[in-house]
Design a protein around this nucleic acid. Sequence first.
DNA 1: GACAAGTGGAGTTACCTTCTCCGTTTATCC
DNA 2: GGATAAACGGAGAAGGTAACTCCACTTGTC
Lengths: 223, 223
Amino acid sequence: MNKTAMKCRPLRADAVRNREKILAAAATVFARRGLDATLDEVALEAGVGVGTVYRRFPDKDTLIGALFENAVDEIATLALSAYEAENSWDGLVWFLEEALQRQCANRGLRDIVVGTPYARERMESVKCRIAPAIALLIERAQRDGYLRGDVVGADFAVLEMMISSLSCMTDKVSPDLWRRYLTIVLDGLVVKRDKPTVLAQDLDESMADETLRMKTQHFLRVP
Amino acid sequence: MNKTAMKCRPLRADAVRNREKILAAAATVFARRGLDATLDEVALEAGVGVGTVYRRFPDKDTLIGALFENAVDEIATLALSAYEAENSWDGLVWFLEEALQRQCANRGLRDIVVGTPYARERMESVKCRIAPAIALLIERAQRDGYLRGDVVGADFAVLEMMISSLSCMTDKVSPDLWRRYLTIVLDGLVVKRDKPTVLAQDLDESMADETLRMKTQHFLRVP
DNA sequence: GACAAGTGGAGTTACCTTCTCCGTTTATCC
DNA sequence: GGATAAACGGAGAAGGTAACTCCACTTGTC
């Protein structure tokens, strides 16, 4: 009697296309400008009217939810994957780098993780899943003698916020600058070291002394 | 003929009192809430009407200027004083701690240093004075073998922004938490060390493991 | 006690964001 | 190819915030 189309007929073909355009545009706009971005901006980017956006997604919150459901989960998963690494320090570094990379490249994601108005409860559940995973990473790295003994799980969350909010200030000018300060922080966390701290994507060239001097000074507009 | 009262007669006594009240209130309000605070809030704190605030200071910008002229200079001066320290590393640490303490305790000052809308040009001149002073500090600390060789002046400005923006997130819950992350950063910057990095005001007790765990977790609202 | 100086705070202006409404366009089905 | 309901666009309503003004009233001063 009732097919799978319980809720009346399916979307018209053009409506489906527009829905995709809206999601893609929203991803772009929120990544670039954070959750403050207007749905008018999303509509513009998508090349549709605001009305169309609001017909597909009843409000801004729903759209944000649809977009970031996965991205946030993904970060929680990273912490678990990091535990697979043979070397516990490498696992920790890898986790921080991966998590930060996502947050620094996506201001909307950062807003959620840091807890801007729109987010809050959205993070609660993730925190609960992520916290134990990080605790494991820390415990192992401390047992292996890599990580300072006085570090606790919440420190990592704080350090992540710290670096991603830094990146918010610098990313217009130099989107990779945060990596430099992550290495400095890591050097402050490590006890013994087999080899110097090097990020997977540490671009020796672009992080070279002279380039950095230019980038940072450009950022600060120091003459 | 014309006395010193070139610009007509002096302020009435009650007006002078109110001017002082306004300045004091503005200092309190901007320190607590940053430069976003309304002049209505300032008026409320001062116990006067908004109209009174606007008669004394033609616009918000002028009031901010009157308040922060000195505070910003002071930070520039700190860098010079730090050069007086016998030990070059201690000088650097002292400078960072003092500068950050001011920024973290005063959100308005931070807004100016970090470059929120209202500030911008206000900082330009200070940067020019502060940059050479920091360069001297760095050069000496590197010559003495304390400071990593790849660090440049702008790094300090970036690290300062990084930590003070962290403190913006945490200061409601735990106004001293930033100190912990400053020590971590310092440990990431140091090469050799005569003694462990300890801040002048490092409160052993309040920064103890258990207290930190509570503070940080409370900040993050992790169950 | 006259009166300019000073005051308070409701109100004006300007702007911004979220979301709605409706006249017009377009896909779909016969 | 024409009828029809779905979808569209975007002006603008609704609701908010912040900077600043204006004027009837109060107060210090000479």
